[in-house]
Design a protein around this nucleic acid. Structure first.
Lengths: 210, 210
DNA sequence: CCGAAACTTTTACCGAGTCAAACTTTGGGC
DNA sequence: GCCCAAAGTTTGACTCGGTAAAAGTTTCGG
């Protein structure tokens, strides 16, 4: 019943072990070049057990998704009265950058992650799927608040686009070799640019007032 | 050398045959429930040949993607001077609905397609990937026009969100049993709503001026 | 300390996708 | 018309991701 009996601790440890071993192998040699059987063996566990903890091979690498999703939803759902989702998420992105959080994208350790991710179509597909899940989660919150399903889904999609754009922009620069501190400093402006586009519209882009 | 020798004609015919046979089976029984070997046999062709024409199983069902992508890019690239991408794409969506085009989403034959698509995670993943490709194609056009990579990618993402939102909204209603003509008539307002959000911003949504 | 519940392993299997080699068809040159 | 090269197809064997079921093995509650 307790949530930290020997059983639970072992499970957590096993899960962590598998994830660590897998990430290590992926970053060393690439996603497609490592088989699940190999991961299982390296972790001293059976193939079935790997799939027990991580239903798809991709989840071995993208296992922070649940946390990220929960955090983003929480930012929107628990925002103060009078604060719009755009404002809340904008502030959240700023704080990620300020605190040097990995999900800001502007983090020195990123290249390995990014390389593994982008060099595997399967992994990219899963990544996009996760972005989609974020959008759906936002939409749910908005529908609950407003009852307007269509508008909720559109706005949710737009917000998600802003978030993913700023993340991948920072990551792209890091991978291109830019200094992490520089990127982090300049990222502030890009965040505002993206959220401004969502908040105030793209207008006649490209062109004049846009 | 000619592009319509016997050889080319046969290839086209074979490709079409495989695609037709596959779509028929998918709509009849669902994507996951049909194996590639089965499709090959039903089309009187070997499994290898199927993969020769369609690199992934998903492409057997989503084989109009290339056309759709080309059309959307062309709408943006060949828009008249002084017309913004938002305006061009908005008009294009309206014309799709007006002409009863399948890609408007408001089409009676849609449920089969939609059912197959939504009941297969693999197919959905590929679908999202294709939307992503559309966004990337838009971004390329904008970068060429403006040189502003970041802004281009954000705007491209926002526009793609609008397009996919209106499509899936129409499709959702059709699947829910709404009359196609009614959906088509009402779709006009939803298109404008989505593109207005992109063009003028979501503001403080949800709330007052939004 | 025993028995039930939870977790893991084993074994066997299926389907997508790849590879290489053999085979068949098409088209061009003579 | 005939033959050769190129293009396309088939075959068969194989890898890998993922599932299923049943038989261990470990933990926990009483």
């Amino acid at each position: 019943m307790a949530d930290h009996g020997l059983r639970e601790r072992k499970k957590r440890a096993t899960r962590q072990l598998i994830s660590n071993v897998a990430s290590g192998l992926f970053i060393e040699r690439g996603f497609e070049e490592v088989t699940v059987a190999e991961i299982a063996e390296a972790a001293g566990v059976s193939k079935m057990t790997v799939f027990n903890y991580f239903p798809r091979k991709e989840d071995l690498f993208l296992d922070r998704h649940a946390d990220r999703l929960a955090e983003l939803v929480s930012v929107v759902r628990t925002r103060s009265a009078g604060v719009s989702p755009v404002a809340a998420l904008r502030a959240h992105q700023h704080s990620l950058v300020a605190s040097g959080h990995p999900l800001s994208g502007a983090i020195a350790g990123g290249p390995g992650f990014w390389w593994v991710l982008t060099s595997s179509p399967a992994l990219m597909a899963r990544w996009f799927e996760q972005e989609r899940e974020i959008a759906e989660a936002f939409a749910e919150v908005f529908v609950a608040e407003t009852g307007d399903a269509f508008r909720s889904r559109v706005v949710a999609g737009l917000l998600t686009t802003a978030i993913t754009s700023v993340f991948s922009h920072a990551m792209g620069r890091i991978v291109a070799g830019d200094d992490a501190d520089v990127v982090r400093r300049e990222q502030v402006a890009f965040i505002d640019q993206a959220f401004d586009l969502v908040e105030h519209g793209v207008g006649g882009f490209p062109g004049g007032s846009g």
